[in-house]
Amino acid sequence: MNAKRIRRLKEYSLGYMFILPWLAGFLAFMLWPFIYSFYLALTDYRFSADYSFVGFGNFAELFASDERFHKSLWVTTKLVLLAVPLKLAFSLGIAMVLNKGISGLSFYRTVYYLPSIIGGSVAVAIMWMQIFGRGGLINVFLQMFGIQGKDWIFNPDSALYTIVILMVWQFGSTMLIFLAGLKQVPKEMYEAVSLDGAGRWKQFRHITLPLISPVIFFNLIMQTIQTFQTFTQGYVITKGGPVDETLFMVIYIYQQAFSSLNMGYAQAISWVLLVIIGFATVIHFIASRYWVHYEDSDGKKGRRL
């Protein structure tokens, strides 16, 4: 009896030994900063010992009078609402074409995935500035059709869209996930309905879509969360401008916290961002009950989070 207990205790401590580095990291670098962030958001901390507790003052100021913050909320939302659906539609469409048993699949997969590999780099941001610049690639092409281009990056009407395009350009990783999902759809199902005379749209609507809806849902959630946190592209390409048209929330947080040293205030913005992301995720989960279809009732086949 006793020996058994000692063995069990030994296993327990062994288990904790194995997860210890991760656990320590989680407690020190994630949980503690997270708890501290609650307090920080309620102060006017400015990177000096002299600060005070302001309660919900930061939040009041944000919502009542900070017009840059309102703009930032708006452009970030716009980015997510444009880039995420476009990217998903695009990658699903391409994945469906590639899934039709085409030869050279791995070649196309490589080419289409490449932008995702380098898309987050400063180098690509620099490249993008030039492509959409005044004498850049886009304008040269437009000129061939006799259209006078403009500086897309520094024009407030178009700056955001250049970044949306950059996001959609990196459709490779969502495409790969869709491809993996499409492979799971049994071919016999298509054959059965095509005998029934169902056209392509009907096949897509009644077979493909329901069967890969868990994968769509998964991509939707991950892309939404990630896009809300966009930083590098907006920071390097447009510096948040022109006239704050690309002042994504993380850029505004960065500016407030590390350029103006308004750290308490910036933390309050971070909290708004977290609540928005959390809210968006919850909405997705609630809505998913109506459109995400799991193959068997316990959802075993579906890709669960």
Partner: peptide, 10 residues
């Protein structure tokens, strides 16, 4: 899934 940008300041 936790957005890490939230805790960069602390």
């Amino acid at each position: 899934m936790f957005p890490k940008q939230i805790i960069i300041i602390p």
